[in-house]
Design a protein around this nucleic acid. Structure first.
Lengths: 356, 356
DNA sequence: CGATTTATTGCAAACGTTTGCCAAAAACTG
DNA sequence: CAGTTTTTGGCAAACGTTTGCAATAAATCG
């Protein structure tokens, strides 16, 4: 009842624009203009108003502003699952880079987690349709959609990262996974390798399809059959990379005819795989060459140091934000829909020529 | 101008409560009550309203609601710096766990990055005083404060994590760093070690003080002098853990009288340190025992597997959220101000008795 | 059956901004 | 100096909810 009546300011929270106006002796609308607009108000009054605002410790109410102008300054990022995958820093790095770019543009970052359940989908849709957010970046997932509402027709600008959804008309920032894997596989072939072992993340997953596709392309180009590569894993999420690697090492041990080159689709898999097969007496790269995906810094300090395909996450984050803010400001609405950022192959001692 | 006039709904975005009311043939206020309040409206009308709402794909506008009730449902987490520290997943794990608990409570998580600059402090204060957020969790940092405004008197419920600010009256969720380090040091002493090497994060940092303090306590308890431990590092942030370890390995190499036990204050430091000193021909734990901090999963797959003090981050996150939501709901305002969550020492092969 | 309570709904005033429109004042213009 | 343009500042109407209050309808009671 008597919260913010004109009797007295009791709570420390909340000098209003009206208070500033009163103190400065001007109208409330003038205060608004003084604080936001550039040249709409006389310099002298502006100074008076600024002084009053500072004296009162005035901070404009973001929700009132948002309601009035019909926009928020929050961007949400939709993450597919856990924020951390073993040693792989993909998600945190993306987050960091996005947040940084966003702040520079005056926006805030909100995290939305897209678990498999309907609850979280609904939650995200509420955020989108409820006007809470101004745009969305979606990481490696399809658009949430439940009872008729879909993120696609929320009217929000959306950018997809890591997953190519350009055919659905979504701006997509992706890496050249397929090409990168093709190249590294070709390099392994050049080094004499003919039998490959491929550690998969979730089967059918976009990354899996692309990366495995890259392997096959390289094999074909070299005239090798599809049978030259054996798959392991495929039923666990990337989040369980270490487990996949451990499991794969078991699988590997059981093989009578051992592949000489291993392509892991995350650093985690490679690390645990290497750790396990070293125990069985195999040496790297003497017996087995290993290359993996992600570019985690820790790879440099493994023994032997691991070759890895570095995901250009920071640039991807920046690019995604640029595209998103561009769409918000309605610049370049019709620009190229797919942005490919190139991965970088980091060659280290875990790769070598075959013995014979 | 003619955005949402009553002429026609052009934009796909935005069925309003008024639309639902019209379709259901009731007043707008009835709709509001039907959707939120429990038994304030007749079941039949409620059904009609729900049907209408679903048909229109209605989603309440969060900012309008927030403005009216004077509360938002956003919690901000204030992070001290980078989101990722090498292989240590502390921050992402905390984020994950906090976000999960928050969503269950109906809140959303916003990320605020507290860099050293004044800009970011001001930004955080704007968020706090601008009514955008309902509460804050602050990670391992002091409260931002600039031109008279301080987070402390924003009226927001705040919980401090990792940094003990209970003396400032802030609910603090911390780990027993000092005790954990004391125990592990004592264990090393029991194994015969008498000369220690301590890898520090930023000097004077709360964690550094606590952890180094733990070492000293153990030494004293065993009757060893403070001179039994040498420090390395101290000028770089934890973010550069790998660099610290590399540098420390150089320092170590230069020592004529080599310590036999190393206590690293992050897994990153330990990993790069180990990698480097192994190259100089030293063996672990034969020549040097190593223990570190954080409990990164990757430690299990290092060679040798690293002993580490596992930070109970998930529980800390949960605890912090519980406290925060408690404060928001004004339950238990006067509960214990300090919550200590216990670390877990994971002993692996990187630790062993001294040779002689 | 009239009186009193209770359940249900509607009206209208908030919440704290922004902004279109208008009026007054100031600055030019011829 | 009257007429015209440009600055400047105020009024009041939004933005889309929630909620106190009042009104009506239904139910209960003596």
């Amino acid at each position: 009842m008597n919260k913010n009546k004109d009797v007295a300011g009791e709570e420390p929270s909340g000098a209003l624009m009206a208070d500033v106006a009163r103190l400065a002796g001007v109208a409330i609308s003038t205060v608004s203009r003084a604080l936001a607009n550039p040249g709409r108000v006389n310099e002298k009054t502006r100074a008076k108003i600024n002084a009053a605002a500072r004296q009162l410790g005035y901070t404009p109410n973001a929700m009132a502003r948002g309601l009035r102008v019909g926009k928020s300054n929050i961007i949400m990022i939709i993450l597919p699952g856990s924020l951390y995958y073993g040693a792989s820093q993909i998600i945190p790095q993306v987050l960091q880079s996005i947040n940084k770019s966003l702040i520079q543009g005056g926006y805030n970052l909100m995290i939305a987690n897209l678990d498999r359940d309907e609850i979280s989908e609904r939650h995200i849709l509420d955020l989108a349709f409820g006007g809470s957010v101004r745009g969305a970046i979606i990481l490696s997932s399809k658009l949430p959609e439940v009872d008729g509402r879909s993120l696609a027709n929320s009217g929000l600008p959306i950018v997809s990262m890591l997953l190519d959804m350009s055919d659905a008309g979504l701006q997509s920032v992706i890496t050249n996974d397929r090409e990168a894997v093709r190249d590294v596989t070709a390099e392994l072939i050049r080094l004499g390798h003919r039998q490959f072992f491929y550690l998969a993340g979730p089967e059918g997953n976009y990354h899996d399809v692309e990366r495995y596709g890259g392997v096959l392309e390289a094999l074909e180009a070299a005239g090798l059959s599809e049978g030259s590569v054996r798959r392991s894993g495929g039923h666990l999420d990337y989040q369980h990379g270490f487990d996949i690697g451990v499991q794969a090492a078991d699988d590997f041990a059981k093989l009578t005819e051992k592949p000489t080159a291993v392509i892991a689709t995350s650093d985690d898999m490679a690390i645990s795989f290497v750790s396990r097969i070293q125990r069985t007496g195999l040496s790297i790269p003497g017996d087995v060459s290993v290359v993996s995906f992600d570019g985690s810094p820790v790879c440099e300090f493994c023994s032997p140091p691991l070759s890895t395909i570095k995901q250009p996450v920071e640039e991807m984050g920046r690019a995604a934000v640029d595209l998103l803010l561009g769409a918000i400001d309605q610049r370049e609405t019709t620009a190229a829909v797919r942005t490919v950022i190139h991965s970088e192959l980091i060659l280290r001692e875990s790769i070598g020529p075959t013995k014979n």
